[in-house]
Simulated assay, not measured.
Amino acid sequence: MSWNRFELDRHAQRIVLDARTRDPKSLNQAYKMRANCAYGLERFWGEHLRLKGERSSQEDRDKAAFIADVWSTLTTKILSKAGIELPQEVLSNQQNEATINKVAEQLWSLGDYERQVALAVLTNFCDAIVWWTQRLKGGNDRD
């Protein structure tokens, strides 16, 4: 494996600024995202489904958008540089079960190497997001 410049910090800053514009309180999700890395790609990807429920509040939908931005950036702008193709789909839990299962199966079927690299990069990406969240979170955003 050769070294790649993934620009994690630059992407993390953009995502945090976008989330801050949408809803500053959604930045609290950064810590939960970092913790979710320990549970694997499947659970990290699925977290946006939980928050985008039919009866979700706007605040939960903003949190889901934050997670979806992270996933989309991870798959399209970061891991693609390493030649690792993850499903790019960001769904809603209103989608049929077959569609959700298809994406989950793609994640479960990754090889060990791809899974390890993807999780390592995701973890570092989330660390950068937490760092930017701490720096850019205003005093009134701490609810």
Rank of each mutant, 00 (worst) to 15 (best):
Q116T: 10
F6K: 05
T123G: 15
G40S: 03
W3G: 04
D60I: 01
A38N: 11
L49V: 07
M33Q: 06
N124S: 14
R14G: 02
Q94L: 07
N4D: 04
T73F: 00
D127Y: 15
G139L: 08
L86P: 06
R10K: 11
T21V: 03
D141A: 07
F6T: 08
A64R: 07
P87W: 08
D141N: 00
L119K: 14
D62E: 03
G139S: 10
A98R: 14
G138C: 10
I67W: 05
L51H: 01
A120G: 15
T73S: 14
A120P: 03
E47M: 13
L41I: 02
R61N: 12
L110Y: 04
E7Y: 14
D62R: 01
K25E: 15
T75L: 10
L107H: 10
E85C: 06
D62G: 02
W71M: 10
C37R: 09
I100P: 13
D112F: 10
E97W: 08
V130N: 05
R50M: 13
A12S: 14
E7V: 00
R10Y: 07
S2Y: 12
Q29E: 15
Q13W: 04
L122Y: 05
W3K: 11
R20I: 01
I129V: 15
G111D: 15
A19C: 12
T133Y: 10
T75D: 08
L51I: 02
S109Q: 13
W71G: 03
G139Y: 03
D127L: 10
P24L: 10
I100N: 04
F66R: 02
K32R: 11
L17A: 01
H48I: 05
L122T: 01
F44P: 01
W71P: 07
E42F: 05
V90D: 01
Y113W: 13
R22T: 09
D112A: 12
K137M: 14
W45S: 00
R22M: 10
G139E: 12
Q29G: 06
G138A: 13
L17H: 06
R43E: 13
A118T: 04
L74T: 02
A68I: 02
D9Q: 09
E89F: 08
R43M: 11
S72A: 14
K52E: 05
E114F: 00
N28T: 06
D112P: 06
A118L: 04
A35V: 07
P87F: 09
T75F: 08
N4M: 07
G46S: 14
